[in-house]
Design a protein around this nucleic acid. Structure first.
Lengths: 249, 249
DNA sequence: ATCCCCGCTTGATCTGCATCAAAGCCATAA
DNA sequence: TTATGGCTTTGATGCAGATCAAGCGGGGAT
């Protein structure tokens, strides 16, 4: 959910080339300026919990830098990641004050927060904001549905390939890299265990399947985290996606 | 996503006791009345496809009666249900004209449709509508995340128990039955295969686990579709849910 | 009545991933 | 330098659920 700094919500800055609008100066104007008093920043260290499931959350926020995850946990400790927040993504829901999942910083994290009440008032006063938020929520719902297909029906190998493709895509769109030429290179922002929680697997299976994809030449690795994708088409094939549509969109 | 007749979107009718607002006379007033010219009904027979993945969808709609499903399909035919629409639920997204999944009527289905363009204009003119839609979309996102936990981490038995609990809950809220006393009784609106597509299982496993729950006294069956739940707490335990909160809310 | 078809159940077997276990790698601290 | 601890890889084994296969039951058509 790309929101960060609500300014982009009111429709301005359409030509801003950076997905993470937080760093775009042109964005920091207009309505938002009036909101300085309700906006503040918070930072968290890697591993810190931002908020626990069931807690009251009196703010909404968007990620400026770093990565956060949303996870659900069962009593016996089984964990499933249900959201992955990259820079510019949004958390929280106007109108409801508790969250149903844990939010955790997996890297050092900087968030831009808005106190909930004033934010809600602003939404009423500035319809564009609400519309943009709706659009983002619908995008997130689409992503969740794709994720459900992955969890319910894909094999372990397909799951890994899908995750690599998703990260490659999101990373590429942050970096504005030239599409369709040259290898795609990125660092995995997740541990094997976090990948497992994302994919509904165990960490051992993740490790084995990553090794298998490397052995089969689908990806190359430098160290444990640095990934090189020479043939994106091949990776998408392995992912079982019926279209490569949407890449770099 | 409870919407049906956009009237409820503008916030009136808070005391309407019926989740399926389509049948509530008090709702059919106000802004909506002005919209008669953009609103129409469509019916489908059981098994008919409402719209194919990738097709252009020039309307948004809500279910009046019957049941529809959203499913994603892989090239080789693996299918995963990603949405289950009961009366009052909403489909379609203002702002995007294609859908990424198949919408199918699993029973005879009546939908209340709004042409997309005018609906979008109305959203701009009537902020309440957009706000209500946002709220509903966020609810749906929460449901999707719960579903992801089910798909990624629950056992077959837990999946079945969860699905039965979900249907019992939704059915009960439609029927306004007296909470917490007496057995809960309902008809399964899905075939074993559809249940399997919902849960990320095969139909054989669904059949076996339903039999097992019956054998163990968690549920009783009359015929193949009619379910009796004598002890809801027991069912929720089997579902692995860490809270029964939310039931009948 | 009989047949057929479709949805469902049940059984036998197979397999992909989980589980249990051990050891390797690398960074940081002592 | 060696020790320590977190992350990762790899191996051996087990099991939940998939797959393959057969048969049941009830409703609709003829």
């Amino acid at each position: 959910m790309a929101l960060h700094d609500v300014p982009t919500l009111h429709g301005g800055c359409g030509d801003c080339p950076i997905r993470h609008r937080a760093v775009c100066a042109r964005c920091d104007t207009d309505e938002l300026a009036q909101l300085e008093n309700i906006k503040y920043y918070r930072s968290y260290q890697a591993g810190q919990t931002v908020i626990w499931s069931g807690d009251k959350m009196d703010f909404v926020a968007s990620v400026v830098t770093g990565i956060a995850t949303l996870t659900q946990t069962m009593e016996d400790g089984r964990r499933q990641m249900v959201g992955l927040l990259l820079p510019s993504d949004f958390v929280g829901r106007p109108g409801r004050q508790t969250v149903a999942y844990d939010v955790t910083a997996t890297t050092d994290l900087l968030m831009c927060c808005f106190r909930r009440k004033p934010f809600e008032e602003m939404m009423i006063a500035t319809p564009h904001v609400g519309q943009r938020l709706l659009e983002m929520t619908l995008d997130e719902l689409d992503a969740a549905r794709e994720w459900m297909l992955l969890l319910g029906r894909k094999t372990a190998r397909e799951k890994i390939a899908s995750l690599l493709a998703i990260i490659a895509r999101r990373d590429a769109s942050l970096k504005l890299r030239d599409a369709s030429k040259g290898p795609i290179v990125f660092d995995l922002p997740l541990t094997r265990e976090e990948m497992a929680d994302y994919l509904g697997l165990t960490l051992e299976t993740v490790s084995r399947q990553v090794s298998a994809l490397r052995r089969d030449g689908v990806i190359a690795l430098e160290g444990k985290r640095h990934v090189i994708v020479n043939d994106l088409g091949r990776l998408l094939e392995e992912a079982g996606d019926d279209s490569d549509g949407g890449f770099l969109v």
